[in-house]
């Protein structure tokens, strides 16, 4: 019995797509959920903040998409092991806290020798951590080779004296990363009240 030509071709098409679907089932299956908002209590100790910060780094902050901890060799972005020690001396005249804050708010201001610029400002979308969340991340970074000292009341140059507990708005309400800005160039500082203004407006970014 001869199988009709359309049936033979249909079987080939079906078998080919089935094979590729099967290949698709062989690779690791991971469903990525949108980042959850982190509720930060105001009475957290520095050690608690470091724990929260580590969770943020692993989740919403997407830090480990690029960075590693305790890895050496040819790396694409700096390894974070012992970063607290290096942060204090990395830029002459800049404190550990200011250096870490600068690395997060304005990452292209200083590029570690041997690496390329590429880290986005973490307080802006698409990552868009709040000032409180960033303080927790700083606490987590301080715990890598040191002891966390920041609290939710700590201020630094990017908070411009505003109490962190009062915080700037959440990421969904934060303005977009300046899309017109050329990549690789330093991003301008975003005053905290600019984000607040955007959040208070009726713009589409509030969705």
């Amino acid at each position: 019995m001869t199988v009709p030509l359309p049936a033979r071709i249909g079987a080939l098409v079906l078998a080919t797509t089935a094979f590729y679907t099967y290949v698709g089932q062989l690779v690791p299956q991971k469903e990525v959920q949108p980042p959850q908002e982190t509720v930060i209590r105001t009475d957290l100790t520095s050690a608690d903040m470091a724990k929260v910060g580590r969770e943020i780094m692993e989740g919403k902050g997407l830090c480990f998409t690029c960075h590693t901890i305790g890895k050496s060799g040819a790396l694409r972005f700096p390894d974070l092991d012992g970063v607290a020690t290096r942060a204090a001396t990395r830029v002459p005249g800049m404190s550990e806290l200011d250096y870490l804050a600068q690395s997060i708010y304005e990452p292209d201001a200083f590029i570690v020798p041997g690496f390329n610029p590429g880290m986005p400002p973490i307080n802006k979308p698409p990552i868009g951590l709040t000032d409180q969340e960033i303080l927790c991340v700083i606490a987590a970074l301080e715990s890598l080779g040191g002891t966390p000292t920041v609290t939710l009341q700590t201020t630094h140059r990017y908070l411009a004296g505003a109490a962190a507990a009062g915080g700037t708005p959440g990421p969904a309400a934060a303005p977009a990363q300046a899309p017109g800005g050329a990549p690789g160039k330093p991003q301008p500082l975003t005053p905290p009240d600019k984000g607040a203004a955007a959040a208070g407006s009726d713009g589409v970014v509030e969705r």
């Binding site: 797509t17 590729y20 679907t21 698709g24 299956q29 991971k30 469903e31 990525v32 949108p34």
Partner: peptide, 14 residues
Amino acid sequence: AFTPTLGFATQVVS
């Protein structure tokens, strides 16, 4: 809003 697994994506593609 979530990103589905690659297995699911390949089923839709197929």
